[in-house]
């Protein structure tokens, strides 16, 4: 009887069909610390060169078929890495994170993800932390410092701490990089960004004298503007159901943006 019982329990727990809760935070080992692994790959494989080419996309939420086609299209393009600008999921449930990564891992280049407001739903923030890592993180490559920031202020009831402007200012201070690129889900000029921190955000970027692009998602439509008339370009990628992504080239203090429809 006992071996039978043990084998029964083994089958139960071994079978992935058994779900404890949609909001369970259960991430297999090979799907953990994905951002750190991507940064490792970026550092190891991208040579020293003048121009870095990024693919900007985001809002993959519930557009799995379109994301799958995006990967096919993006794989034909010679870019250094991909930035997923938040709203990985629609409902913040464990399975959705897994579904999106199972598509994105087919990319032939590393991808980095930043958290979106939908990802905070349920226990999504815990799943994101386990799967991708810190909500705010950065790395330096070829003189460019890439800074990823949680700007989903409304999800934290506009508590004044999201985005963490102190951390952002720290990140943009220092002489170990020449140019800064900031990426987050909600753009500062949107209602879901803490209005008390909007000016602080724009000011930190401006005063660093090192940033000329701020990258975002959330609005589900492409825009490329200078809302603060300070020479800093705010680039917003579309949701994946629009079947469009952006190619961003960075060199010195210059950049170019190209729209790709697929």
């Amino acid at each position: 009887m006992r071996p039978l019982l043990f084998s029964f329990i083994f089958i139960l727990t071994g079978c992935s069909l058994f779900e404890y809760h949609p909001y369970e935070v259960i991430v297999p080992d090979d799907e953990q610390d994905l951002n750190a692994k991507a940064i490792q790959a970026i550092q190891a494989t991208i040579p020293q060169k003048d121009t870095l080419t990024l693919i900007l996309m985001g809002d993959t939420q519930r557009f799995y078929d379109d994301v799958d086609d995006f990967v096919t299209s993006a794989n034909t393009y010679a870019a250094d890495f991909v930035v997923l600008n938040g709203d990985i999921t629609d409902f913040g449930i464990n399975d959705e994170f897994h579904w999106v990564h199972s598509i994105m891992k087919k990319l032939n280049k590393p991808y980095l993800a930043v958290i979106g407001n939908h990802d905070v739903s349920g226990n999504g923030e815990l799943v994101f932390e386990k799967m991708y890592g810190s909500l705010n993180y950065s790395f330096i490559k070829n003189g460019f410092k890439f800074i990823f920031l949680n700007t989903n202020s409304r999800e934290y009831r506009f508590n004044g701490h999201v985005p963490d402007t102190t951390w952002l200012k720290d990140q943009l201070t220092g002489d170990d990089f020449s140019h800064g690129v900031v990426s987050s889900h909600v753009p500062p000029f949107d209602n879901d960004f803490d209005p008390a921190l909007e000016n602080a955000y724009a000011r930190i970027l401006r005063h660093s004298n090192k940033v000329n692009v701020s990258l975002h998602g959330h609005l589900h439509s492409y825009s490329n503007s200078q809302p603060y008339d300070d020479g800093i370009q705010y680039i917003v990628s579309t949701s994946m159901d629009q079947r469009m992504y952006l190619i961003l080239k960075l060199w010195d203090d210059k950049f170019s943006v190209k729209e790709v429809y697929y």
């Binding site: 078929d65 799958d68 409902f91």
Partner: peptide, 12 residues
């Protein structure tokens, strides 16, 4: 929620 995800993405 999973059902609506599936219905709109029967390809993947």
């Amino acid at each position: 929620l999973k059902l609506v995800s599936y219905v709109q993405n029967t390809g993947y």
